[in-house]
Amino acid sequence: MNFNKITGLVTAFIVGIFLLFPCTGGADDVVIITNKSVSADTLKEEDVKNIFIGKITSWNDNQKINFATLPNGDEIHRTFLKKFIKRTPEQYSRYWKKQIFTGKSRIPRSFQTEKGLLEYVASTKGAIGYVSTGQITDDIKVLTIQF
């Protein structure tokens, strides 16, 4: 098989794949919530990202950050990642698996439902998470994010 033939086959394959799988996106709005023990009221967008990829691990008052996530496949999770982390759920999942399998970190705490995540944030000191706007309760604090 000559090189031109291989190049042609590869090109045809790639074009075909693009046509087969159109991109998707879009979801409800997401808010960042914390436990009431957290003194911060605002966060920079960059700080949210660094918290959820494990690069910032403590609040300004040295309280440990306990962040929580929703599972892959959840639309709120996808929206949160796209808006704040700039990654897809698959990329985010692979990032954390890399941390786990190279001995650098533990896996983030994950909840199957927004309700479960909300309860965890409300009851855990230093906790931070995200939910859709319709889930907000008086038990947690909603942070203002500076973009």
């Binding site: 790639i14 794949i17 087969l20 799988f21 496949g73 897809t88 698959e90 990329q91």
Partner: peptide, 9 residues
């Protein structure tokens, strides 16, 4: 490139 949640090229 990830075309969908289950396929990447």
């Amino acid at each position: 490139y990830r075309f969908t949640y289950w396929f990447e090229l």
